[in-house]
Design a protein around this nucleic acid. Structure first.
Lengths: 205, 205, 205, 205
DNA sequence: GATGAATGAGCGTTCATTCAT
DNA sequence: AATGAATGAACGCTCATTCAT
């Protein structure tokens, strides 16, 4: 439930008192930030966020050294949440196809929190850094698919993963936008990706 | 060859004299802006852009009333450029698969200019408004694919398009990042999408 | 009737064509400027003035190299006007006291044009430079008064002049403000100054 | 000793913490501003003033919402200062003539601060509003003079006051300019005004 | 020679970030 | 440890002045 806390990234100031309290406040801030960001988009100011969280601006900075750190912490929180769901999905226990479907459904369902991540798509660091948590299991799954001969081998596994993520992000976006239900979106992502990544697939020519 | 021109968006001040000259200068500014933005990211200031373009900041504002307008104009310019390439690809003249491959190659190749668009992905307006130019032919292609029985019919054409775009954006991003060549990326996008969108494709089960 | 023209101050650009036409245009500009300045105060922009005069901003600059020059030209025009009135008053022909009364009446009456001068009070140059035209006769008058034993000799003539000008400016301001008629103002200026400057006057103690 | 304080004009932002500190800083800024303005004239930029005051431009704006407010505050401060000196002079305790001499000496001596006011002479508001503080005692003095038969009654007291102010401003200006010492200036103002305003004075005719 | 555009400087503002209390 | 204030950088804008046509 804790959100980012004494992790390796922040920890800059505010190291005293009970860490539990710290985490609690930090979590509260992140929650407020998430809703403010979701409403007002990335244009929301630190002042807005601080106010929504009920703390002074300077206090906000005590917890998150700068705007970027806050956003990254939010992403981290979301990713942690998603990673949990992925872990819960026991992907290893089922065939690759089934695992992919299950995974996708879980992620799309959790997608509302994921929204904040959209904001970070470009600050590339988090791709490398934070997404590791989520990407790990995905990567593993894709690699298993390759090894088991389910996925084509003419493309590197990383590229397949990139393809999946793009597909996911784009179609999941339709769910945000209210143009698609969770089920339809999940099915679309899964089937299109499987179709495109399966061994059988032969390029158009 | 001119880029944004006497269009409906800008035209705020500086409306006199030869429109051709105006457009030429505006195009130059957009070019400079594109490279600055590409290098320094969205953090580049208007002053930076003005300097790069070799004009005074006030002049910059003469041409683009504010930062947002400038970015939107850049997106427009990029889209126009891409749209031209798509038009040049004569997609109607060849089978859907071939058309898709050609289209993808053209877009990926032009992708460097496309980078600026990344910055705008979220200012949604342009998605609806400007992208129409580019989305039109793509949509048409996908719809042709559906009609000709090349593409699966259990997913709406729009969704297939969304899937393609996500795939494209994600994989093309690898080209930006220097992790992939144009050819590999194009092939990956094309084959994965075709595999996933083809009639033959059967959901994971 | 001509206003500033081929004088020693401006003459910067616009030296061609018929000097008559030039002067005429310049006079027109000064007239427009005077009314605009009178209405809007010194906050009136060059654009406002140019528009009121019916010329392009750049043309305005052709006639008056900068804002200051324009204002100075206006002051000059006003001063010329006043100087004329002073000359007409034949101050030399009458006793000092009478001359002073006449002079004051003439100046106060012409005071409406003088308004523009208010704006320049602080740009000291004109005190030295332009006011010479007007100050000359005044100075002469005061000096005559001193020589003839009408005015006190314990104060330098220049200081008496300064005192007169302050008195004039302040009381004449009441006429601008509509709080005083020309006659009352003139009488007040004259009698107070004469009382204060006359030989008889004895300091407070 | 503090200068403008929790008054009715400023107080825009920065309203918290100790008002004493606020006032102190504001006073410091006004002091710096006064010297900068005195040196460079009204052309001094907000940046110049901020630098001279040793604060950031943004901070300057925190204390004074705009240039005009700053200038007005300076005028207020100067007037308050002058008003204090006038109050200290105990004008009521001595005969009118002596009071006038004392007053004038006090004002001329304080005149260096007064210089900033020159800049504002035309922004009429302060004439009506702020000068009340200073004009009150002066008016009272003049009225006393009239009542006691010291000053002539053929001119309204207000006009005598106007005359005094004009005289003062003009002659005090010579002190600014370094062309006159404090004593000479004071004596000139006093004797000329008394001579002109005394009952005995008879108009030139 | 008159014009539109360009320039540079300043204004007033917002905001992320830092400092002093 | 939390706060208000300070900072610096940028934004969007206006305007006097200059340039190129």
């Amino acid at each position: 439930m804790l959100v980012k806390a004494r992790g390796e990234v922040v920890r800059c100031r505010a190291m005293t008192r009970s860490p539990a309290l710290r985490d609690h406040i930090a979590a509260g801030i992140l929650d407020s930030a998430a809703s403010v960001l979701a409403e007002r988009g990335e244009s929301a100011s630190m002042a807005d966020i601080a106010e929504a969280a009920g703390v002074a601006r300077a206090t906000l900075y005590r917890y998150f050294p700068n705007r970027d750190a806050l956003l990254r912490a939010m992403a981290e929180a979301a990713l942690t949440d998603l990673a949990e769901r992925v872990a819960d999905a026991k992907l290893d226990a089922v065939p690759v196809e089934e695992a992919l479907a299950r995974l996708t459904r879980a992620l799309v369902a959790a997608t509302s929190r994921y929204r904040a991540l959209q904001l970070l798509e470009k600050s590339s660091e988090q791709h490398d850094l934070a997404e590791a948590r989520l990407a790990g299991p995905l990567q593993a799954l894709v690699e298993r698919g390759v090894e088991q001969g389910v996925f084509r081998t003419d493309l590197p596994a990383e590229l397949l993963l990139v393809a999946y993520l793009g597909l996911f992000q784009s179609v999941a976006g339709q769910v945000f936008a209210g143009r698609l239900g969770v089920e339809e979106a999940s099915a679309a992502i899964t089937t299109v990706f499987l179709g495109g990544a399966r061994t059988a697939a032969r390029p158009g020519g």
